[in-house]
Design a protein around this nucleic acid. Structure first.
Lengths: 336, 336
DNA sequence: CTGAAAGCGCTTACAG
DNA sequence: CTGAAAGCGCTTACAG
């Protein structure tokens, strides 16, 4: 109260040096020679006085903010995606950058407004931008790092983990476990439609590639009733054991519940593998096999691209790790 | 490429007005008289040229940023909390503010660094700040809006939904359904320890207040095995129907799985009510009763406090709605 | 309404 | 190393 925020001038005066020196020291500019005692004195004085630099002035002068803005699409940010985002934040912190998220609601189509309110170093997108938004970004002179997890018409994904990789892991797992009849089940998810259609397409492509006959897929509302009807339908024409790849672990849970209601034995007559290795998987009965991603390497690559675009040294290349792994649990133990 | 970002001067020149006028129009200052035709011309020109104001310059000049920074503690942001945060963002947008989140990793203890990188209008906290962080905030002259969902030693929660409210809803529901023997089960959650201990305390307080004898509680690791052992123990001394309030729906799912393994009938011998009305609840078998919060009213109150602290009109008072509601499903249908 | 001007707090080239 | 200075782009009093 009463005291306005301190400026470099205040610190300079207190430490008995020039404003320039304060700026050099606080920005850790090793290309400017400042004696060690002076350096220490400035640092100590700034800390003692509780000096907090003005980000606005800094950004205005340097022509660029220090915020990496993550533009989260209208997805559900759960488990794995959350970890990815956190890891990116951790990594870019090394460059004195701060990772902030804009989430929810439709920033889409009004990126212009957003950019006029927050000065950022760059923006990270997970979907292609609308023409308006792309234009706003260019007008504002803010660079974009795109981390597309999905394939879009004419624009392939540019991350290591594609939807096809995930589905392939599910399909191969079910085949290895001995299920020869396969299905893919998607529960409607307004926020994730883009993912689900990509996965259904991938499922059929992969089944074709593996020579699996009669692979089926359905998209239904997320309720046990709906899932029951679908599962029942899949067992009317054939009694051969069925392996179902579910779009996420929640859908897999629904399948297990439906199977119990229909008295279809899991995993003997029905095998299930989930999609996102969520905590649900381990707590269901039977526990649900699921797919786990290696997000660390994904995050490293995105962070490296952020660093690169901002003129930093992106660091040495990362060993690209196996990206996708099936966590085996009872639900897909194979036909009797 | 090549073209630097436009400034107010460019727009003023193109529209044939002064820089001041551009600023007045673009900021919608109704206290300055600008003729409607001029207003329109400026707006159109700015839009056509793709002008994006510099947030840094704006913040520097006005002494305050337009970002409401949500400092998310190291919690799991799932379902309900996510909705709360989104709603806050939606509401403050009316004041030309942008809601951004800083999540994950430990900003805690280094708020100083964060504040020197992003200029914000205010900060929203969900936990009491450490002395260092509180000091940094004060030094930077950034106001704080605290939305404490939890009680802390000497610092009560200041949101409408307390942990005791949630637990009371669970307990009362189980009693109404006819369960006279009650238990509370928490699965270990490193990120949510603060919540879980608050709820256990609340559970015992409420049971005492309701005259429930022999209420028990346990905290165990999140696995079906662990939960099984606990549930089994609860049935060794008594065969009276037991109502269990679970700390979240995931724990409730584990309880149901454990009950099935132990051949304890749900809801006849064991009733379960979850804690966060997550999608899991409806997909389990039996479906799980759970607790739903009214986040809209919560968000409205937080947004009003943000508006107030920033000198805006907080809008007219909101009807404080019933905050907590039990969604009834089969898992707590009552003893046979 | 206009136009010229001040000033927010910083970084950075520049002459000593 | 210092000290004086410029200038980032904006908002806002101020005199016309």
């Amino acid at each position: 109260m009463g005291s306005t925020a301190l400026t470099v001038s205040d610190v300079a005066k207190e430490a008995g040096v020039s404003r320039a020196t304060v700026s050099y020291v606080l920005n850790g500019r090793r290309d400017v020679r400042v004696s060690e005692p002076t350096r220490q004195r400035v640092m100590d004085t700034a800390r003692r006085m509780g000096y907090v630099g003005s980000p606005a002035a800094r950004a205005l002068r340097s022509g660029r903010g220090d915020v990496v803005l993550l533009l989260i699409p209208d997805w559900e940010v759960s488990g794995q995606l959350e970890l990815l985002l956190e890891e990116i934040g951790r990594l870019v912190a090394a460059y004195e950058l701060v990772c902030l998220r804009y989430e929810g609601e439709h920033w889409q189509g009004s990126l212009h407004k957003l950019l006029s309110r927050i000065s950022c170093a760059c923006v990270v997108t997970f979907d292609p931008l609308s023409p308006d938004d792309a234009h706003a970004l260019e007008s504002a002179g803010v660079p974009e790092v795109s981390a597309r997890l999905l394939d879009h018409p004419g624009i392939p994904h540019n991350t290591t983990i594609g939807q096809d990789t995930i589905v392939a892991a599910q399909v191969d797992h079910l085949l290895e476990q001995g299920y020869t009849r396969l299905a893919y089940l998607v529960t409607e998810e307004p926020r994730g439609r883009a993912f689900t259609t990509a996965r259904i397409r991938a499922f059929h492509d992969i089944c074709t590639a593996r020579g699996v006959k009669g692979a089926v897929s359905t998209t239904i509302s997320s309720s046990v009733d709906g899932i029951s009807k679908t599962v029942q339908a899949w067992f009317t024409n054939s009694d051969e054991p069925l392996g179902i790849a579910a779009w996420n672990d929640l859908a897999a849970l629904g399948i297990i519940s439906a199977a119990a209601a229909l008295k279809i034995a899991v995993p003997q007559r029905l095998g299930v593998v989930g999609g996102d290795n969520s905590p649900v998987a381990a707590l269901a009965r039977p526990p649900i096999s699921s797919v786990k991603f290696n997000l660390t390497s994904e995050a490293q690559q995105i962070a490296a691209r952020i660093a690169g675009i901002l003129g930093h040294d992106p660091g040495n290349g990362t060993p690209a790790h196996a990206a996708v792994e099936v966590i085996f649990r009872l639900s897909s133990a194979g036909p009797a």
